[in-house]
Amino acid sequence: MMSQVQEPTVATPVKKKRLLSIDALRGFDMFWILGGEKLFAAFFIITGWSLFHIGAEQMQHSAWHGFTAYDLIFPLFIFLSGVSLGIAAKPLSSYPPRQAKAILLQGVKRLVLLIIFGVLYNHGWGTGMPASPEDIRYASVLGRIGISWFIAALLVWYVSERTQWIVAVAILVIYWLLLSFVSIGELGGGNFTAEGALNVWFDQTFLPGTTYRNLPLDPEGILSNVNSVVNALIGVFIGRYMIKHQANAQYLLIRLVILAGVLLLLGYVWGQFFPINKTLWTSSFVLVTTGYSVLLLALFYALVDVICLTRWAKFFAVIGTNSIIVYLGSSLINWQYTSKSLFGGLIKIAPAGWQDIILFGGMLLLQWLVLYWLYCRKIFIKV
């Protein structure tokens, strides 16, 4: 009788709270893509506070080497896809053969759809989808998310946890050795520039279609996809760790913070020899971004699961539960035009600074309301 009373109070709520914190963090991540990053510059114009100026600078990608907060958006999403995988997935050998086959096929379907949606996102503006296959950009953010998730899923489904750890470490080290010491013609051999890195040869030789802005190196190119798998794998390890220690929130929080610190320390130290670079997706970049990702997850876990401050989390969860719609919508719908159409009168009479707040705040509000409408009707479009 005691087990009947304890079962619902221990197992069920923990699962719901954990999922809310992950959805909230995913929504927080996507919030900046909706237009949230533009508010810092607007607030700086109004207040003149240097804090907002720093925030506006952090909402720009690094010019080349280095790291900004905006550089974290993409790898954080990959990391969270791994966390969800680590929480829910298990080896396919533990399923009946027919169910295992269905799970594998669903994974392949997800990969293909994300690649297709990525191509659609790339050509959502301007002249539209090119008629010639050679003019299509096949590499994409969604494609990388699909590839990193799928390879991580295959490892979870088919190999042991120990092997997964070995693969993660091996990828980081081999990628570093490859870019640092292997050269093909004049490319590589420790050249980490946009024109001379070994990645250029891979993209020019194997990447079909065109590259981003017809540059020699695509930021979502062939070789750097390999290292992004580790972002997902570290997410898998963290997801498993959360499940294992879910009964002791304080212990889990402390360990997550310590792990985040170790990853950041290793990443910044390695960055002295192998520069932190988003486009090359260097091994130091992987460690730094996963370090900050774990730190953010610990923060959201503490606020949502431990302190139980859930109301604010639901604001971001509304975004996080339909993240694919958020991302595609940012390319296929001109939300800035829509905001101007609805709030144009207020924008014209508002003083400088406030014009941008009304414009971009309107964009955020309109997108959030659409997502909230889907959320209330439990319409979650997932791939």
Rank of each mutant, 00 (worst) to 15 (best):
N231V: 02
A247S: 15
T338I: 14
L187S: 09
R137P: 08
F31A: 04
Q204V: 04
A24D: 07
A100R: 06
P8Y: 10
I166D: 03
R162A: 10
L369E: 08
P275E: 06
L263E: 05
L113H: 05
Q58D: 03
W125R: 14
V119I: 14
K314C: 12
P130E: 05
L198D: 01
P275R: 10
G362D: 03
L178G: 07
P216D: 11
F315K: 06
L266P: 00
K314W: 13
Q246H: 09
V169P: 04
M129N: 00
A168F: 07
L179V: 08
S132Q: 09
I254D: 06
N322A: 01
I357M: 07
Y251F: 14
P97I: 06
L359T: 11
H245D: 11
K109R: 14
L371V: 09
L142W: 01
F206Y: 12
Y138G: 11
Y327N: 04
H245L: 09
A350V: 06
I22C: 10
G35H: 02
V229P: 03
A317Y: 01
L297N: 02
L266A: 13
I238R: 01
Q204Y: 05
V182T: 09
K16I: 12
V141I: 07
L364Q: 04
F300T: 02
E37Q: 14
L85F: 14
Q164D: 01
V236P: 04
L303F: 12
G221L: 03
S293A: 15
F79Q: 10
Y70S: 05
L187G: 06
I145S: 07
Q355L: 03
F315Q: 06
Y95L: 15
K244T: 11
Q336D: 15
G107C: 01
L309R: 14
R110A: 09
V169A: 13
V370T: 10
Q6L: 15
W64F: 10
G235V: 02
K109L: 11
K16E: 11
V304Q: 08
L92Y: 04
D23Y: 09
P133K: 06
V112C: 14
L154C: 15
R162N: 14
G66N: 07
V286N: 03
S228F: 03
N227C: 15
L309P: 05
V159W: 11
G55F: 07
S94T: 13
G35Q: 09
